[in-house]
Design a protein around this nucleic acid. Structure first.
Length: 496
RNA sequence: GGCCCCUUCGUCUAGCGGUUAGGACGUCGGCCUCUCACGCCGGUAACACGAGUUCGAUUCUCGUAGGGGUCACCA
């Protein structure tokens, strides 16, 4: 079996979105699984819309996701001469012809056909022009496009065995003589893409089902060019809740890979989620390490039906597909601390909360603290936001926490500073002695321990909920705890 | 409209003639408990419809309906 070579060919007209990322992921998985190569090719033939910014964004997105490529990025515009040469060759061999019909004429015919509810296809007006007629028109300086000549005689249908969908066929009659080169001399996507895939020796074309309609025409080009036709696998599309294809234009940042990076997603968690959007295993495994996923992946297990990206706009709890969040949470609380620590570090640095000794003398404290708080976090950003009180003194107080756990008990104004005294006096300061102190004090006061514990939590972390208060107190440290209980309690009782 | 593809819980899906139709996420209830989360236990919830084939259809065939894609001198 020949080498597996797949490609990801984004057109740089915007950011990398999750649909594109998923296509890249599937190609990447297939390449890795078969020890093949992934080629990155930037299809920048549309000079109008292509931007350097977009190219940078796409490359950055792929790198962040960890989808490394083996060749490229190649740029389609660098091979324009090849595309033109291919068109010329088709022309020379009589497999394509020049068409002098104007855009206006065609537009007119198209509209007429449409309004008459007829199917429109190019009528082949210029197909049978003699060499002399063609030459005469060229001599008059008439602009022309080059059309591929679809052979309507032979077999009748063009078909291929799609790795996802099975046998797909289309009759020649349904295929019009399509344009491969514009009147300004620029070759079109259909041609460029094939020429590039031939040059890059692509063995498997794994792309979205939105390309299904291109495939038959492209196969015709492969054949006309005498090239081997690659294998095809058309992935289902991802739609929104209203079943519309997701797009940058209509869905904005929610579909941008960069958005997930900003919101504190773990790159592999996103990959894992994307892999599951349209692909599964028989045993229903859902959490995969890189190696596991590469091993388990196969084109044949890709679902035929489109899948829905399940997100509700303006839902603060689920700012994206709940499943994506849940997978992210899973990794967040189970991944090795050695891998998580640097990621948290980045976020703390960005928030100005990082201190260098977290990497040095206080490394153990840092690791333990992150480990302590991670189980109720959803994203990396939470460490700097919900977890701010562990790393800074200027944390905010949740209104509900203050109302429910502080203001409700006027006496806490004196109890909590008293608790500070007792913590300060402890001969040993650890979660066990802290627990004994707090419970003991509650008993002495004849109150439920929860009142003291929850009050302490609200004052020292600003939050209604969190990990075991005794461990929190240990993590925050005696000095800071005592200080917070003494000085941050009373002000909460003062009206704004 | 033509052509092509698709159709199992709200969502992602398992299933490849005989299952109490399974799992995950969400949701609901419970346990745990200093709160919340984690974790654990349990509940809710699906084969689009109609014919056929068959002893038997979620599964095979054909229709119908619905959804999607595509019909450019965009990629």
């Amino acid at each position: 079996m020949s080498e597996v070579r797949v490609r990801f060919p984004p057109s740089p007209t915007g950011y990398l979105h999750i649909g594109g990322a998923r296509t890249a992921l599937y190609n990447w998985l297939y390449a890795r699984k078969h020890n093949g190569k992934l080629i990155l090719r930037i299809e920048d033939t549309d000079a109008e819309r292509s931007t350097q910014e977009s190219i940078d964004g796409i490359l950055k997105g792929l790198k962040w996701l960890g989808l490394n490529w083996d060749e490229g990025p190649y740029f389609q515009t660098a091979f324009t001469h090849e595309h033109k040469a291919a068109a010329q060759r088709l022309l020379d061999e009589g497999l394509a012809y020049k068409c002098f019909c104007t855009k206006e004429e065609l537009e007119h015919k198209r509209e007429a056909a449409l309004s008459a509810k007829r199917d429109y296809k190019y009528d082949g007006s210029c197909r049978n022009l003699t060499a002399e007629e063609t030459a005469a028109r060229e001599a008059r300086g008439l602009p022309c496009v080059i059309r591929f000549k679809v052979d309507r005689q032979a077999p009748g249908t063009v078909s291929f065995n799609d790795h996802v969908l099975g046998v797909i066929s289309r009759t020649y009659n349904d295929i019009e003589d399509f344009v491969i080169v514009r009147s300004n001399g620029k070759p079109l996507y259909l041609l460029c893409n094939v020429v590039d895939d031939i040059r890059d020796r692509i063995s498997h074309v794994i792309r979205g089902q939105d390309h299904l309609g291109n495939t038959a025409r492209q196969i015709l080009i492969y054949r006309a060019l005498g090239a081997r036709v690659p294998e095809f696998a058309h992935m289902p599309l991802t739609l929104d809740l209203k079943k519309a294809k997701i797009s940058k234009r209509s869905h904005g940042e929610i579909v941008a890979v960069q958005f997930y990076q900003q919101r504190g997603f773990l790159p592999w968690a996103l990959c894992n989620f994307l892999a599951l959007l349209g692909w599964s295993t028989t045993d229903n495994q859902e959490i995969f390490s890189r190696e596991e996923l590469i091993k388990a992946f196969s084109l044949e297990r890709i679902n035929k039906a489109n899948s829905i990206f399940n997100y509700q706009k303006d839902n603060p709890k689920f700012f994206t597909d709940p499943k994506a969040i849940s997978i992210n949470e899973h990794y967040l609380r189970t991944m090795p601390m050695a891998e998580l620590a640097p990621l948290v570090k980045e976020r703390l640095q960005a928030a100005g909360l990082w201190q260098d000794d977290y990497d040095g003398s206080r490394r153990e404290w840092f690791i333990n603290t992150v480990d302590l708080i991670r189980s109720r976090f959803h994203t990396l950003n939470d460490f700097a936001e919900m977890g701010r009180a562990y790393f800074a003194e200027d944390y905010e107080f949740e209104a509900r926490a203050v109302r429910k756990n502080v203001l409700k008990h006027e006496e806490l104004k004196t109890w909590l500073p008293a608790l500070a005294d007792s913590l300060e006096a402890l001969p040993e300061y650890n979660h066990e002695t802290i627990e004994a102190a707090m419970r003991g004090m509650a008993e002495d006061l004849g109150i439920k321990p929860g009142i003291l514990i929850n009050g302490a939590r609200a004052v020292t972390t600003g939050r209604l909920a969190g990990p075991s208060m005794f461990e929190v107190a240990e993590a925050i440290g005696r000095e800071r705890m005592v200080n917070r209980l003494r000085h941050k309690t009373a002000p909460l009782y003062e009206p704004d």
